[in-house]
């Protein structure tokens, strides 16, 4: 109890509280809008006769009445669940493909010295430097016209995992570099093969970095809109960001539906983060050197 009190009174706690407030406020708009059952929230116009606190309280966005209508509409009037499922398949496949490609590559970049190593790393970086907007047409030509993967998830998974690759490779390589080499050396002496070392020792030790890069690959696929809308020619194959954009146009936009959809879309991400976060907190490598 005293420890909790001590925590609450610390600067660290105050800082976290402040940061959380800043993070939450814009989200509160989204959530209130989602639960308002309407397409827009009451505009903030400060009540001139209210006191200081009254005026301040008027800035907190709250729906006039809570309602699940927006969620109901989003889930029933559209193929939303279907799109959510598609997105899950695409994003999870992207994560698996991306991680398996990048873990192996990053391991080689970290542990072997070979001609072309630095140039190879640089090549991965270059790929992030060319603006994605202008890759649209060439990607369409390759994936749809050459590979014939238009309207298929395979095409999307391929593009997404390659897009996420440079970050994953660089991140994992950086992390592998921090892992002590002594463990591998002794394993090598005991006759383990490189592959065994990679699977049995390196991957388990690198779990925090794999969690981060996995989350990143997932998010790359999860929120991508333009490629998915261009590649897919069948409504039942759309991913959820494409479906969400149905609510927005230049003329009139259903922001309430969009907000409700956004809240739904973020739930799997939060669950994934909850599942992965134990890799980000417990000091796994502590004591690894001794072992």
């Amino acid at each position: 109890m005293r420890r909790i009190l001590g925590d609450i009174c610390s600067w660290r706690f105050a800082f976290l509280l402040f940061a959380s407030a800043i993070v939450i406020y814009p989200l509160l708009w989204v959530v209130s809008l989602a639960f308002s059952g309407q397409q827009s929230l009451q505009l903030v116009v400060d009540p001139p006769d209210a006191g200081f606190w009254g005026q301040l309280a008027a800035l907190v966005p709250l729906p006039e009445q809570w309602s699940l209508d927006n969620f109901r509409a989003v889930l029933t009037e559209q193929l939303f669940m279907r799109w959510l499922f598609n997105s899950l398949v695409v994003a999870l496949s992207t994560t698996i493909v991306g991680l398996s490609l990048s873990c192996t590559a990053a391991y080689a970049f970290s542990r072997f010295s070979f001609p072309g190593r630095e140039r190879g790393l640089m090549l991965f970086l270059i790929s992030q430097m060319f603006p994605a907007v202008l890759m649209l047409i060439p990607l369409y030509v390759i994936v749809v016209q050459w590979l014939g993967l238009g309207n298929s998830w395979l095409g999307l998974v391929l593009v997404y995992s390659i897009t996420a690759l440079p970050f994953c490779v660089w991140m994992l390589k950086g992390y592998f570099d921090t892992l002590p080499y002594e463990i591998e050396e002794s394993a090598l002496l005991e006759g383990a093969s490189r592959l065994q070392i990679f699977y049995r020792i390196i991957l388990p030790l690198a779990r925090p970095a794999i969690a981060v890069t996995g989350l990143f690959s997932f998010m790359t696929a999860w929120n991508e809109f333009i490629l998915a809308s261009i590649f897919m020619d069948d409504e039942s194959r759309y991913t959820v960001p494409v479906g969400l954009r149905f609510f927005v146009s230049d003329y009139a936009s259903d922001w309430g539906f969009f907000a409700a959809g956004s809240v739904l879309v973020s739930i799997p991400v939060i669950l994934l983060f909850l599942a992965l976060q134990r890799f980000l907190v417990s000091g796994l490598s502590a004591g690894a050197v001794k072992g």
Binding site: V23, I24, L27, M219, L244, S262, V265, V269, I270, L274
Partner: peptide
Amino acid sequence: RLLLILPWAIPNYIT
């Protein structure tokens, strides 16, 4: 920790 990653989780188009 969960609160602080939320901006990443919600589609950034709306935020």
